[in-house]
């Protein structure tokens, strides 16, 4: 709609009013729009955490690239882990439009200042874990991510559209791995069940603490960065995986799971949030390994990045001179 304000110098109050108007109209905020500092900070925190999660998430799966049990599975896994690098890159780019540099984000990650999804601080000792990560972890991630395609910040939403499109195969390949194991030899079936036992609860915790204890949620929902509450998404996920586990012929390690006619949803048991908080605070089984590995790759690559930058500077100079 046409507005009458000549806008060369909007007062902060006017700018905020316009921002609220855009959010209320379900339109998108774009990088060069004015936005409240807290909105910017929240987005930087969320998008960079999301990017870090993709990058750290390469490790538990990358762990099995060299040992994948068939060449087809090796190719699928490699393509999947590669996608995660790509998704990290899309997200870092989105965060950069808010005025933070990649070097800064990397620094924050390897110094332990920035967080990432604690799910990646668990080990992947068996091949079945690659199935569980695809089915449960990526499944939970997709529940979280689909609504983010409509996040109010344009670049974030656009990155998520691309990511969701590419990730559609991730969950399916995980499901397929577990299906083959479950229907395979007894040893394979046991491997699958044991793995699902380990990943079920951490996957449910990926949606974050219960709504009553989630400090940032309300504001994020008001800003339309987040569209559904943690508990709503978690319920949606449980409703999805219960029938899927039956197809797999595997049991979810939660005795409280039963259909609740009245609610029209599956009930499920309480989760051990103490463990979640421990892992979040960096005391998970693999926190230090993941960060150390990221740091080492970054440090080992420093001379390469410098060499390429030096070469580019030199070529530039020569181009100017000629």
């Amino acid at each position: 709609m046409a507005k009458n304000t000549p806008s060369f110098a909007l007062s902060e109050q006017e700018a905020l009013a316009r921002f609220d108007e855009i959010i209320a109209a379900d339109e998108r905020i774009e990088p060069s729009d004015w936005m409240p500092d807290a909105y910017r900070k929240t987005l930087i925190r969320q998008i960079s955490q999301h990017a870090h999660s993709e990058i750290i998430g390469m490790q538990p799966e990358g762990n099995w690239i060299t040992r994948a049990p068939s060449l087809k599975r090796k190719a699928i896994l490699m393509a999947k882990v590669q996608d995660e690098a790509g998704h990290g890159l899309y997200l870092y780019s989105a965060a950069q439009t808010l005025g933070i540099g990649r070097d800064q984000m990397t620094e924050d990650l390897i110094s332990g200042k920035a967080k990432y999804s604690s799910i990646f601080n668990y080990h992947t000792p068996t091949w079945a874990d690659i199935g569980s990560i695809g089915w449960l972890v990526d499944g939970a991630a997709i529940c979280n991510q689909v609504p983010l395609c409509r996040a109010s910040y344009g670049p974030y939403g656009r990155a998520m559209v691309r990511i969701c499109k590419e990730e559609s195969f991730h969950q399916r390949q995980g499901f397929e791995i577990l299906l083959h194991l479950s229907r395979g030899s007894k040893a394979q079936h046991d491997m699958a069940q044991e793995s699902v036992n380990r990943w079920y609860a951490p996957a449910l915790m990926m949606f974050g603490p219960p709504d009553a204890q989630s400090p940032n949620s309300a504001q994020s929902m008001a800003w339309k960065i987040k569209r559904f509450s943690n508990d709503d998404l978690r319920q949606r996920f449980v409703d999805m995986i219960v029938p899927q586990s039956e197809v797999l012929g595997l049991t979810l390690p939660d005795r409280a799971i039963r259909w609740n006619e009245k609610r029209g949803h599956f009930d499920y048991g309480d989760l051990d949030w103490d463990e979640f908080n421990e892992v979040l605070k960096g005391r998970g089984p693999a926190n230090s390994i993941r960060l150390e590995r990221r740091k080492q790759a970054h440090d080992d690559g420093a001379w390469v990045r410098e060499a390429a930058a030096a070469y580019a500077a030199r070529e530039n100079k020569e181009a100017m001179a000629s």
């Binding site: 090796k74 882990v81 590669q82 890159l89 990045r305």
Partner: peptide, 22 residues
């Protein structure tokens, strides 16, 4: 080359080496 995944000097190069490996 698969070993380089998550170990390359820069993320863009992770993607590049992975493409070659694939």
């Amino acid at each position: 080359l698969g070993w380089w995944v998550a170990r390359a000097p820069e993320l863009e190069e992770d993607v590049a080496l992975c493409n070659i490996a694939l």
